[in-house]
């Protein structure tokens, strides 16, 4: 076993995590992309994406999770999500109305339809996913700092 596997939870948890974490991430992405045709959307999908990274952190410890998604990257993604959302709104503003749905809406119930709504969902999922991960990291780090002082 390599050294990175010494931290974290037991072998059973780690094995299950290894098998499921990719599926959870994929499921989150699925929820985001199908936000406009099925239940879910940017917020729900973003939460599931964040949960896949939190899952990794719980099972394998901080270092492994940070190698996949560091704090700096999370912060960049979070800002990117917010700025993307605003840019979509402002593009609509340039086309006549703030938040105007300026892309062709296509056929209902198809994946490529509903104009700007899938794009908005992606922006929201970036913001929510990275934001929730950052909040979890902040809570974890604060607790560890407090313990190390004792």
């Amino acid at each position: 076993m390599s050294k990175e596997h010494e931290k974290g939870m037991s072998l059973i948890v780690k094995t299950i995590t290894r098998l499921t974490v990719g599926l959870i991430l994929l499921y989150g992405i699925y929820i985001v992309f199908h936000g406009h045709v099925s239940p879910g959307g940017g917020f729900a999908g973003g939460v599931i994406i964040a949960l896949s990274f939190i899952h990794l952190m719980l099972a394998y410890g901080r270092e492994v999770a940070f190698r996949k998604l560091s704090k700096a990257t999370a912060s960049v993604f979070e800002n990117l999500g917010a700025i993307l959302f605003l840019i979509i709104a402002l593009l609509g503003f340039a086309g006549g109305y703030f938040f105007l749905n300026f892309i062709s809406k296509g056929e209902p119930f198809r994946l490529f339809s509903a104009g700007i709504i899938p794009l908005c969902n992606i922006a929201i999922s970036l913001k929510v996913g990275a934001g929730l991960f950052a909040i979890f990291v902040a809570l974890v780090l604060l607790r560890l700092d407090g313990e190390s002082k004792k």
Binding site: N79, A82, I83, L86, A89, L90, F98
Partner: peptide, 11 residues
């Protein structure tokens, strides 16, 4: 929109 843009760009 402008204060939101200011906030996001600053961060």
């Amino acid at each position: 929109a402008i204060p939101l843009a200011g906030a996001f760009l600053t961060s």
